[in-house]
């Protein structure tokens, strides 16, 4: 009756790759193993969700993915550069050029307009004000919010602010967005709008890693990775067929 659409977008080259990544804090008897041998790959056009209970290693995973931290064992490769083999300066350069963050509370600068917020990372990259603004407008147009360019954050709804944060995360050459509970401060409908935008933006050529504890939002990803005690215990969402949808979809309890 209802055909499931194929996974949207075309999947491109690998943007982020982790191989047997370990992260241990401390040594000996008091060592804390935050991550124990995680393999993860995100390609252009792919959105991967990470779920798991508190303390399962989600934040550590995000920090490694963004080059804010390095693995004690294993490798992390971002946009072709092996972060784990770099000195902090070189790592910071790759990080600045390749990834953007989206946080729960938007983190826009209130004194700057939307377009200025989006162009800020490019100005910090050393790009001039005018080209930076042009890139910002492109990034905003990419997700259909160019009409908000000259508004200030406090004139915008939470959902609109988060869309600006997504544009900022992917301004200029950045192709990887790390989103940490991006829907956490939004109501259900606004959260869904933001996921729709993030999904569409990733489909148009970016990689995304999404940490969330809300299964409803994780379901927008191509895959959901479950962490437990620093290990990936399960991955879902990869391949699934239309046969599972609605019609005779197994254990439905609504029928009374």
């Amino acid at each position: 009756m209802i055909a499931a659409p194929d996974s949207p977008g075309l999947v491109g080259p690998v943007v982020l790759s982790m191989k047997m990544a370990h992260r241990t804090h401390g040594e000996g008897a008091t060592a804390v193993h935050a991550l124990r041998g995680v393999d993860l790959e995100v390609r252009l056009g792919e959105l991967v969700a990470v779920m798991g209970p508190s303390g399962s290693g989600k934040s550590t995973l995000l920090n490694l993915a963004g080059g804010l931290d390095t693995p004690t064992q294993g490798t992390v490769t971002l946009a072709g550069a092996e972060l784990s083999a770099m000195d902090p300066r070189a790592r910071a350069r790759v990080r600045r050029r390749s990834v953007g963050y989206v946080f729960q509370d938007f983190n826009l600068i209130p004194a700057l307009t939307a377009a200025e917020n989006v162009s800020l990372p490019r100005e910090l990259d050393g790009v001039g004000t005018r080209p930076a603004r042009e890139e910002a407008l492109v990034a905003m147009a990419e997700i259909g919010i160019e009409d908000l360019a000259d508004r200030f954050p406090d004139e915008l709804s939470g959902g609109q602010q988060q869309r600006i944060a997504i544009a900022r995360a992917l301004v200029g050459p950045r192709r990887m967005v790390l989103a940490d509970e991006p829907t956490g401060a939004l109501d259900s409908a606004a959260g869904e709008d933001v996921m729709r935008v993030l999904r569409a933006r990733v489909d148009r050529g970016a990689g995304g890693l999404l940490v969330t504890h809300e299964p409803r939002f994780a379901a927008w990803a191509d895959r959901t990775v479950f962490l437990r005690d620093g290990m990936v215990v399960d991955t879902t969402g990869g391949a699934s067929g239309p046969e599972s949808l609605l019609a005779g979809g197994g254990r439905h309890r609504g029928d009374r």
Binding site: I2, A4, P5, S7, P8, R196, R199, P215, R216, A218, A219, W220, A221, T224, F226, V233, D234, T236, G237, S240, S244, L245, G249
Partner: peptide, 21 residues
């Protein structure tokens, strides 16, 4: 729990794909 969550998440992914389309 894990086996069931995999199945429930799979269903959730499928419904969401329909929504996205």
């Amino acid at each position: 729990v894990q086996a069931q969550r995999t199945e429930s998440m799979r269903a959730l992914h499928d419904f969401t794909r329909l929504k996205a389309a």
